[in-house]
C-alpha cells in the first residue's frame, strides 16, 4: 500500500493507505481527527471542509494521496489551546450552531471566506456558504456569527 505524508495541524504525519482512501477517511480513521464529518456523498454538504495549503476544500472529494506533502488544517487545529479562534467564538456568541454536525465544515468555510473577503455583506456571506448545508439553524445566526467573526478576525489581524 502506498504511504502518504503530510502536515496536519502543524504535525508531520504519515500512514499507509489504499490509493482510494479519501482525505476525510484518512483524517478520521487513521489520525483519529473525527471533527471533520461526512454528511453526503455528492460533494454538496460541506461537513467535511478542511483547509489544504491555505484554502478550503471538501475532504470527501480529495484522495488522501493527493494531499501528499500538503499542509492540512482541520477544525481541531483552529483554536489555540483552549482559546477559540475568533470565528469559533463568534459562532458560540451568536448561537450559530445547534446539533454541531455541520459546524466544523461551516466554520472552516467561514474562515476561508473571510480570508478572501475581510468584510463580507450578508448577501456575500450567504453566497459564500453555498457549499455548506445546515439543517438546524436556518442560517440566520450563522450569518450573524460570520459577520461578527470577520470583524474579530480583522481586529485580531490588526493587533497581531
Amino acid at each position: 500500500m502506498p504511504t502518504v505524508r503530510m502536515t496536519v495541524n502543524g504535525r508531520a504525519v504519515s500512514g499507509e493507505i489504499e490509493a482510494r482512501t479519501l482525505l476525510v477517511h484518512f483524517l478520521r480513521n487513521q489520525l483519529g481527527l473525527t471533527g471533520t464529518h461526512v454528511g453526503c456523498d455528492t460533494s454538496q454538504c460541506g461537513a467535511c471542509v478542511v483547509h489544504v495549503d491555505g484554502t478550503s476544500i471538501k475532504s470527501c472529494t480529495l484522495l488522501a494521496i493527493q494531499a501528499e506533502g500538503a499542509e492540512v488544517t482541520t477544525i481541531e487545529g483552529l483554536a489555540t489551546g483552549d482559546e477559540l479562534h475568533p470565528m469559533q467564538a463568534a459562532f458560540r456568541e451568536h448561537h450559530g450552531l445547534q446539533c454541531g454536525f455541520c459546524t466544523p465544515g461551516m466554520v472552516m468555510s467561514a474562515v476561508d471566506l473571510v480570508k478572501t473577503n475581510p468584510d463580507p455583506s450578508e448577501q456575500q456571506i450567504r453566497e459564500g456558504l453555498e457549499g455548506n448545508i445546515c439543517r438546524c439553524t436556518g442560517y440566520h445566526n450563522i450569518v450573524k456569527a460570520v459577520k461578527a467573526g470577520a470583524k474579530a478576525m480583522n481586529a485580531g489581524a490588526m493587533k497581531g
Partner: peptide, 12 residues
C-alpha cells in the same frame, strides 16, 4: 455544548 462542537470534539 458549543465548545466541543466548535473544536471538533463532539462524539457522534
Amino acid at each position: 455544548e458549543d465548545f466541543r462542537f466548535l473544536t471538533g470534539r463532539g462524539t457522534y
